[in-house]
């Protein structure tokens, strides 16, 4: 039976991890490669590097980071942030990453998804969607771009369906309403998207404890769940989280 995945996300700026990590004995707690290796040892199923480097001249640092990571971490690695072309994607994928995620560039030019998928296979193309609920009692979610700074007129569910048709192999769905709150994932949003498409959906935004993962993987019908800070700060350990999921009857890789 296909296991539900637990994914750790690292925000990387200028080749360094933005949020530090204190609880694992690391030589260099700011090195993404070393952190990815530590998460691998803890039993995480996949690692995502989100490049938040602002200046284009430092973008090459991500390639170098991916090269070093892929030499020592033998689980899937996805990289997002700043990927706008086939050339960008190729440099990341030939460095040893397995997937690239696209967000703003795909909204502005959806054909990019098709081009990437035809070039590298749909399994290598993740469509990242940042969505925010349109008003408190609304069941519509709006797509945002540029790291959540720019609103669009696009409905998140419709965009997910389109993204699949354009060739995305997976959707990384972030609830902007929940992101950073640690109040739990947006199960309603995740379920709505998961039911609308026939590709795997990764839920992101709002993880605060192990039960939040259980909820989004059952009620939310997500195929995978992603978190960043709770893993970095050690408030939830991957091994404990997986034991909790298993006890809840959710298939996980142990």
């Amino acid at each position: 039976m296909l296991a539900k995945r637990v994914i750790a996300c690292l925000d990387v700026k200028d080749g360094r991890v933005v949020k530090g990590i204190q609880f694992l004995q690391l030589r260099d707690a700011g090195d993404p490669a070393e952190l990815a290796a530590a998460y691998n040892r803890e039993g995480v199923d996949e690692v995502v590097f989100l490049d938040i480097t602002a200046s284009s001249e430092n973008r090459g640092l991500m390639v170098e980071t991916v090269v070093r990571t892929a030499r020592q971490v033998f689980i899937p690695l996805a990289v997002g942030g700043g990927i706008r072309s086939i050339t960008d994607a190729r440099s990341i994928l030939t460095s040893g990453a397995d997937k690239v995620s696209v967000n703003t560039a795909a909204v502005e030019k959806p054909e990019l998804i098709t081009e990437l998928s035809e070039e590298f296979g749909s399994q290598a193309v993740v469509l990242a969607i940042d969505a925010r609920r349109d008003g408190l009692d609304s069941n519509a979610w709006r797509v945002y771009t540029y790291g959540g700074r720019q609103s669009t007129n696009i409905n998140a569910i419709e965009w997910a369906i389109e993204g699949e048709a354009f060739g995305a192999g997976e959707i990384l769905l972030t609830s902007m309403d929940r992101d950073g709150t640690q109040n739990g994932f947006d199960c309603e949003l995740t379920r709505a998207i998961s039911r609308a498409v026939k590709i795997p959906v990764i839920a992101s935004g709002g993880a605060g404890n192990a039960e939040h993962f259980a909820q989004v993987l059952t009620e939310g019908e997500a195929d995978a769940a992603l978190a960043a800070s709770i893993f970095h700060y050690g408030s939830v350990r991957v091994a404990d989280l997986k034991s909790h999921l298993k006890a809840r009857g959710i298939p996980v890789r142990l």
């Binding site: 296909l2 995945r5 199923d45 026939k198 890789r253």
Partner: peptide, 13 residues
């Protein structure tokens, strides 16, 4: 088959 999420992606036993 249609009805399954494809690609089959992730860890399976």
């Amino acid at each position: 088959e249609p009805g399954l999420k494809v690609p089959h992606m992730g860890w399976n036993q």
